[in-house]
Design a protein around this nucleic acid. Structure first.
Lengths: 234, 234
DNA sequence: CGGAACATTGACCCATGTCAAGTGTCGTGG
DNA sequence: CCACGACACTTGACATGGGTCAATGTTCCG
């Protein structure tokens, strides 16, 4: 082993199944908690697609957007990463996405060499990495189902509900959502323009389903009706 | 270990990097080549989302469509699986997608219990499973970039070019493409309707970029111009 | 020959994109 | 404390790509 790079793309907690991931993270923590802290300013890139993988990062505070871009600049955000998430595993020792801070963010660095070594000597860890990737893949496919088949309204509703569930899992208020990212980030995540995202928020406001005290703060007034709007299955 | 199911969703050769996957497959083959053969008729389901994972399958001949459906019937095909590909790894011992034969298909079955056992005793195998998932994830994200950001014409052009590359890898004519699946399958894969897929093919025909001797047989007349139409970066 | 399934084509419409103002909101410097 | 500029967000008017519905072709197979 070991002559081969560890080779993976980023993975992290998704709306699915925090359990196995938490187990995985506790394993990582032995190494990761000794890693060096690094601060990234908003808009700053942590790493770019194609860069050689030097480190894997665990997010301590803040939010990252992981995205890819087409030649003409169109951008697809593939996921947002939050505290506790781990990002930066690539394929063939190259990052497969760009990682940009959505707001000032602190990450803990783990050298790829160390992780590679741990995985080589710990089959259980390798197995859990695999399990985690499988879940990440399932989550990505969920997103595909959304961007491939759903209308703008359904996409935005799903997006908000995903935050709601995330809050619930963290023991926070599932009706009070903080949106750290810009409309552009949301649009590029959902495959919509900023204008459409904005108009859809306004529409939800007029329907008395949400309130927007600030543009980055959403109160869900009727989660059940939002669920209907999201168009079934998740 | 082992009390936990192997937990993964399906993975297989994608347009990326056949190498590591081939290595993985040779490992599988020790067990898989002793597995039982099974024939699936066109339209028949091999397994359904939510079913308990009993087997993993290696495709011998034919094609499968792997898809998920929304409550109202909208369908997203997440990938097509071809001979040599392996499908059927789930999450938490449940399949995450439906697998339907696009045409009569033969698969070789490997009991999940056996695979689980092999992985437990072979850290190298577990590690390669992980690596494979990472590549599968990268491929899925590529598709997301396409369905999320590209126009109908760009999607169809990319789709055809993916076949062209696949043919090239297999040492077949990259300009002569066989489309085993229906327009509906293609549409559900690309996030378009059958009508749009059909119209786009006709447009490409009028532009003298393709010929359609039969509806399931495409000749690419100018791969470079198709590449331009596909809109950069793959 | 007849019918079923699939594909193509046409006419029309609507959701979303595009382009262009306008309106906060925040941080900085006077 | 206010003024200003930068930036993000919202809103409006309009254009259009692709969806919808419906009719017609085509292929295949019994």
């Amino acid at each position: 082993m070991s002559s081969q790079p560890v080779a993976t793309s980023s993975f992290r907690t998704s709306q699915f199944c925090p359990d196995a991931i938490n187990r995985l993270q506790t394993r990582f923590e032995h190494s990761l908690d000794h890693g060096q802290l690094r601060r990234i300013e908003a808009k700053e890139l942590l790493f770019a697609e194609g860069d050689t993988v030097s480190h894997v990062y665990k997010i301590e505070t803040g939010v990252l957007a992981l995205f890819r871009v087409l030649a003409d600049g169109r951008r697809q955000v593939l996921e947002f990463a939050y505290p506790g998430d781990i990002v930066g595993l690539g394929v063939d020792n190259e990052y497969t996405m760009n990682a940009q801070a959505v707001k000032p963010t602190r990450v803990r660095c783990l050298s790829m060499a160390v992780l590679r070594h741990s995985a080589a000597s710990d089959p259980d860890l390798a197995f859990k990495l695999y399990d985690t990737m499988a879940r990440e893949l399932a989550a990505t496919r969920d997103l595909m189902l959304t961007t491939g088949q759903r209308s703008a309204m359904e996409r935005v509703a799903s997006f908000l509900l995903a935050f709601s569930r995330r809050n619930q899992r963290k023991g926070q208020n599932p009706a009070n959502i903080d949106l750290p990212m810009t409309r552009a980030d949301i649009g590029d995540f959902l495959g919509l323009t900023i204008e459409t995202v904005s108009r859809t928020f306004t529409k939800l406001k007029l329907m008395r389903l949400i309130e927007l005290p600030h543009s980055n703060e959403v109160k869900l007034l009727d989660i059940n009706r939002l669920d209907d709007l999201a168009g079934g299955s998740r």
